[in-house]
Design a binder for these strands. Sequence first.
DNA 1: AATTGCTTTGAAATCGGTTGCATCCATCTA
DNA 2: TAGATGGATGCAACCGATTTCAAAGCAATT
Lengths: 342, 342
Amino acid sequence: MKKEITIYDIAENVGLSPTTVSRALSNHPRVHVTTRKKIMDAAKLLGYQSNIFASSLRKRRSKSIGVIVPKLNSPFQSSVLAGMEKIASQSGYNLVISQSMESLEKEISNTNIMYNSRVDGLLVSKAGTTDNIEHFQSFFNKEIPVLFFDRVPENNHSTGVVINNTQAIYDATAHLIKEGCKRIIHAVGNLQINVYADRLKGYKYALMDHGFVFNAENVISIELDEDSGERIVKKILNLSPRPDGLLVSNDTSAASCLMALKKRGIRVPQDIAIVGFNNDLISRMVEPNLSTINYPSYHMGEVAMKNLVNHLGDEQHEILQKTNTITLRSELIIRDSSKRHT
Amino acid sequence: MKKEITIYDIAENVGLSPTTVSRALSNHPRVHVTTRKKIMDAAKLLGYQSNIFASSLRKRRSKSIGVIVPKLNSPFQSSVLAGMEKIASQSGYNLVISQSMESLEKEISNTNIMYNSRVDGLLVSKAGTTDNIEHFQSFFNKEIPVLFFDRVPENNHSTGVVINNTQAIYDATAHLIKEGCKRIIHAVGNLQINVYADRLKGYKYALMDHGFVFNAENVISIELDEDSGERIVKKILNLSPRPDGLLVSNDTSAASCLMALKKRGIRVPQDIAIVGFNNDLISRMVEPNLSTINYPSYHMGEVAMKNLVNHLGDEQHEILQKTNTITLRSELIIRDSSKRHT
DNA sequence: AATTGCTTTGAAATCGGTTGCATCCATCTA
DNA sequence: TAGATGGATGCAACCGATTTCAAAGCAATT
C-alpha cells in the first residue's frame, strides 16, 4: 500500500508551491528552466505519476477516444482498429473500444457509457439495425465530435470516412460483364446498412449502363458469414438460366461460395465467375484466388483517427465542421476467380 | 455549451443534500425508498450524467480494464478481444486497448500509460521481445491485478490463461507420425515467446516417444506471416531426404505454405502432410482443408476477463492469488491436409 | 530614487462525487 | 417518563491537478 505521490509531495520536496510544480510538469513556459529541471528530477526520483482523474476533472478532457464497432472479431474491423490505435497512441490518446454486436440497443448503451466516460471524441461504425442517430444527441449538444466510418448514417451532418461503395461494385459488375457474364448475381448484406445499399446501386447502374435489365431475383440479401456460401449457392442453382457471374459483398462469404460451388463440381471462373469484397487475406489463399475490391481498412482507421485528433487539437473546431465526407480510394483487383479470357 | 448537471443541481431541485443524492444514486441502503425514487426521477428529468472523473478520483477506481496485445489485426487477437469485451461490458467495465507492435519498448510505454490511466486491472499478451516483466512492477506494488493470456512470461507469480501448447503440438506430431510421415518439419515463430518454445518441446517429446531422432535442421523459426510460405517451402525443398510432414504454428502461414507447395506441383497430403494451428477461418477455406489445433480464442478472452472481474469484485483479493495458471482445452482437428490413409 | 515592465512564483478557488462522523427524530424498552 | 436504539439525513473534509489573479523579484529606464 505505497502512498500515492502527488504534486504536493514534489512541492514539499523541492520547496516550491504545487502551482509551480504543476506548471513545470506540463511544460508551461512561465517556469524558469532551472526550476523546471529541479522539479522534473524530483518527480522522477519520487516516482511521481500524474493522476489522470484529477487532471481530467479539472481540465474537462479525458485524452481518450471512444470507438464503437459492430463486431470486434472481423478482419476488416480489426484492421481498422489497428490503424486507429497507431495514430491515437502517437497523439497521446487512449482508445476505449466496445462492440455493438449489430444491435441498436447495445449501440445506445455503449454510446451512453462513452458519453459518461467523457471521451473527447467518438468514432462509430453503425450497427446493422441503427436507423437513426438520436442517441448521439448528447454528443452533438456538447459539441463532442462524432465521426463515422465505413457504416455511416444517411442524411446527417457529421463527418464520415468511407469508400465509394457504389463505384466499387459498379466497376466489379462492369468487369464481369466484360468477361462475358450474362446473368450476374449480387449477394449482399443487410440493405439497411448504407454500405450495402450503395453497393446495390452500383450494381444496378452498371447493369443499366451496359444494356442489362435489372432483375430482383438476382439480388440475394443475406448475412455474409462463413456458412453463407451454401445458402447462396443453393439459391443460385435453382435459377434458370443458371447465373454465370457472382458478386459477393465480402471475401469470407465469397470464399464460402467458392467452396460450395467446387463441392458441386461447378468450375470457377469457367462456369461462374466470382468477385468478392475487402481484399482479406483469404482472397489470396483460396483457389482460384478471388478477384475482389481492395478496401484500405488500415488506412481508413488512420485517416479517421487523424481527422478526429486534428479536430481536437484545433481550437476553432473548424476542421470537421467544414468536412462532410472523406472518401478513400478503393480499387478492383482482378484475380483468377473472374478471368474468363486468357 | 449546456451547463453540466451535477448532484448539487439535483440536491437543490429536490431539497436534499448532495450527500443523500450521491447515496441514492449509488443505491446505498441508508436512503429511504421514497427519497431514492424522488432523486432518481429528478436525475432522469434533469438529464444527469455522473462525472466519472470526480467519482474515480475519490474512489480511486476507474471501472476500466487495460488490454495490451501484440497486434490488433490478427484473427486470433481480435477474437480474444471480442470475448473480453463481452464480459467487461456485462460487468460494467470499460476496455482500454493498445497494441505493443511486438516491441518491448512500446509495451513498456503502453504499460505506463495504462498505469497512469489508473486501470483497475491489466490483461497482457506479451510482445515477442519481452524477456522480463519489470515494467509491471508498479502494478504489482500497488496490487493492481495483472493477468497474462496466451503469451505469458516464464517464472512469474502472476496468473496466466493459456492452452497446453506442448500437448497440442505433441498430438499433432503424433498424428503425422501415425499417418506415416518420416521427416516432419516444425515451422515455428519466435522461440523467445513461451507459446512457441512450448510447442517446440511438444514436437521434440513426440518424436522421442515414437523413436524418432530430433534434428535441428527440421525446425524453422521464422515470422509466420502471410508470405512465410515461400520462405518455408524453399528451405524444405533443399532438404534431403525431402520432408513429408509439416507442422506450421499458425494457420495463416500454413495456408501460405500450402499455396507455395501447390504452386510447385507438390501434392498435399500425399507428398507432404500439413497441420496448422489456431483453427482460423482460413483453415476451413483452403483446399485441402487444413488439419489444425482448435484454439478457443473467444473463450480465452471470456475466461481471462471473467477471472479478472471476479478478482476485482472479491474484497479479499484471494481468487487470483490462489490461481496460477488456467489451462483451456484445445484439440487437434484432423482434416484433409494430413489424411494419408483413407 | 522612482517608475515601468517583465519574468517567476504562489494563494486559493475550483472541478464533482464520496464518506467519516454527527445530528435529528421516531420508535421501543425498562 | 427517561433513556436507548436505529434509521434517515447532512456537514464538511477529502481526492489531486489546474488556473485565475495577484504579488514579489529584478533590471532597465527616466
